[in-house]
Design a protein around this nucleic acid. Structure first.
Lengths: 134, 134
DNA sequence: TATAATTTGTGCGTATGTATA
DNA sequence: TTATACATACGCACAAATTAT
């Protein structure tokens, strides 16, 4: 329930509640969340506030939002194992706009960059990749 | 310059322009961007549109926004080298709210999770960490 | 110390467009 | 075609944090 006088912003309260329900299994992977209009009515907040809340979950990589279709809990993706040689260096960051298009990286998903000897050897969408250091 | 009829959303056009100027050095690391009100006036868009544009750069980990102070281009952080043993598995994702508080992870910064034998050995803020395979 | 100005944060309502069912 | 659902964008008002006076 949203408390208007708790000091915690309403969009954050709503995001917290949705996140909790997702984790609890009320909205399992693949499930459709209520529409923005419904959430707006049921929680007594404006639709803009709902969109901010959903935007947070999106930035966390927790849900997928599609125009006209609705918001779904993201399915756990199959991670491809990528073997990385000794001496490699690994960092992670959010992708550039170019990388997002190039690698088809969804919202809220970082990339992992593998380098060796100062040269970049690979850039991987982090939701589809598990690096194994062999 | 923002084109109202290009089909590209205005907040995205503005984000692209700001990103380009940051990369070009017009706004070097540590520099303060114009205030939201100024950007709004200079580009002829509403403040909400400016906030969405800046929000994108924020989610990319490119800028730091502080209430009352303004928006600054993020300084490149010193990366601490963390040696990781053979056989480890590495993945990256956006942090949970708890991890963000715990590890003090800024906006737009992922975490790297190192596991060995199915057990999590470490969670690192990706902007301060460079994994090296030993 | 107190006040004002500046800047970001939150939230609402409204309108219109686009995508999907 | 119609209804539903998300996307973009504007304006307004007020709150909170910070800085300047």
């Amino acid at each position: 329930m949203i408390d208007l006088h708790s000091g915690v912003p309403r969009h954050r309260q709503l995001a917290d509640e949705l996140r909790t329900r997702i984790r609890a299994g009320d909205y399992p992977p693949g499930a459709l969340l209520p529409s923005e209009t419904r959430l707006s009515q049921e929680h007594g907040v404006g639709r803009g506030t709902v969109r901010r809340a959903v935007g947070l979950l999106r930035a966390e990589g927790l849900v997928d939002v599609a125009s006209g279709r609705g918001t779904r809990v993201r399915m756990p993706t199959e991670r491809q194992r990528v073997s990385v040689p000794r001496g490699s260096e690994v960092l992670a960051r959010m992708p550039t706009a170019e990388e997002r298009a190039e690698l088809d990286v969804p919202d809220g998903v970082p990339v992992m960059v593998v380098s060796l000897g100062g040269r970049v050897r690979g850039v991987y969408a982090a939701d589809r990749t598990l690096l194994t250091l062999s």
